[in-house]
Each structure stands twice: as structure tokens, then as C-alpha cells.
Design a protein around this nucleic acid. Sequence first.
DNA 1: AATAACCAGTTTGCGATATAGACTTTATTT
DNA 2: AAATAAAGTCTATATCGCAAACTGGTTATT
Lengths: 117, 117
Amino acid sequence: MLPYKELARLDKLVHEPARLAVLTALSACTLAEFLFLQELTGLTKGNLSSHLAKLEKGGLVAIDKHFLRKKIPQTTIRITSEGRAAVENHWKQLDSIYATIQQQGAHSDKQSPRNGS
Amino acid sequence: MLPYKELARLDKLVHEPARLAVLTALSACTLAEFLFLQELTGLTKGNLSSHLAKLEKGGLVAIDKHFLRKKIPQTTIRITSEGRAAVENHWKQLDSIYATIQQQGAHSDKQSPRNGS
DNA sequence: AATAACCAGTTTGCGATATAGACTTTATTT
DNA sequence: AAATAAAGTCTATATCGCAAACTGGTTATT
């Protein structure tokens, strides 16, 4: 498949910047607390919460809530094996496409991007 | 800046898959016709048209229309120097972030993604 | 005790977005 | 003449990303 077609078809659940940041951060650790993830990514609480819900719905993360104190929640998030595969595959796809387009070089003909395959 | 924070702040005008495909394709050639771009990316005409409008508005592409026949347009698209810089920089950012997270390795501690700087 | 401030996270409303089918006007084919 | 196709834009729709408002609690202050 043409790299451009492949690009246009990237999985948006993973590709969206905020979620790509979350998944990438989570793939670098075993477990993360909500506040820690918020700090790592710079997202607002509302934003992070929405994105985590989307990722959980997509099966890419698992969310646990427990209560260390009476009723104060503490939410921890893990990436699932499906999520880990998805984000690693995503980065590999991007890397592969980038390598392909770099082989084409800067000089190019009118309306004729070369395929570096 | 933490790579995750940088990820979450990626420029969405460029990062959106359809537009990343368009800009990347255009950076590999001097000029492209609308239909050719449509073929390269696999987008529908309506979709491609909307994305091109957005890119033009953002100054990343220039669109020319001429009429080979009476009133049937023939649209050609060029990437601007600003657009070329934007998409190249975008790919470099992704590549750099990817290299950074790869240095962290697969093994990681609970809630402690290491920074590979 | 009453009140205020803070906490961790969710919910909500809003403006923006991506998408493809409908549309326009002309050319080509039957 | 009628039917179909062309090149691209316009439009309606569903979904999205976002942060402020909210919730149900705890802690701090008066």
C-alpha cells in the first residue's frame, strides 16, 4: 500500500496527540496514577478523564479505583497488552512510513512522488 | 520538556492523518493535481477538498485552478515553504520522541518512566 | 460547630471537526 | 435528445476535544 494511503488510515484512537501521549507514557511504566499521568502529559483533568474513558472503552487501558482513605478515590491506570501492541505498532508504522518518504529525498519531479520500496 | 507533554501538544493541523498524508505526499513532488492526490491518499473528494481548504487557510499549501475546458476546473496544489517546514519538522519531532521513548527500553518500574535525555 | 478551602476525578455544554453524499455546470457517450 | 460522467464544492450530520462546573468527600480555619 502507498505510504500516503497508509497514513490517511492511521488509527485515530491511538494517533490523537493526547491519547498517543497517554499510551506512550503508560507503555513505559507498569502502573500510573491519574495525577501522575496528568503531570506527565500536561492535560487538564477533564480532558485526561475523557481520553482515558475512550481508551478504556477501546480496551487499550484498564482503570482501577481504590480508596486509600475513607472515600477519597485513587485511580490507577495500566496499559493492557492490546494497548501496548497498538501503540508500539503505531510508532513502528510511523517510523516505517517516515523511513520510506526519506528515501525519496528532497528532490522530486512534478507530480511523481517516488515509492521507496 | 517531557516527551509526553510534547506529544500532547503536537500541531493538529499537521498531525491529523488525512492532512499528514497530503502534506507528506506534496513534499515529495513539485505539484500535484487534485485527482492525483485523491488517488495517492485514498480520500473521498469531499474529504480531500475540506482538508485542502484547511491547509490553504493555514498557509501550508497553495491551490491554483485553471480551466482547460470551458468551466471544468483543474486544480493543482503545491506545498508552500511554510508547509514543507511544518511537515518536515513534524516528522522530526515524532522521530525524536520515538527515539527518546525507545531508549527507555521495555522494562520499566511502576509509575516511573525514565527520561532518556 | 460552622464555614471555607481543597481534593480527585467525573460530567456537561459548546464550538470545532471529519466525513461522504448532494449538488452544480459542463462534457461525453449512447 | 437523453443519459451518464466529470471535477470539485457545498452541506448536513455525527462525533470529537476541551475545560469549566460539578460531586462527594476531607482538612483547615474561625
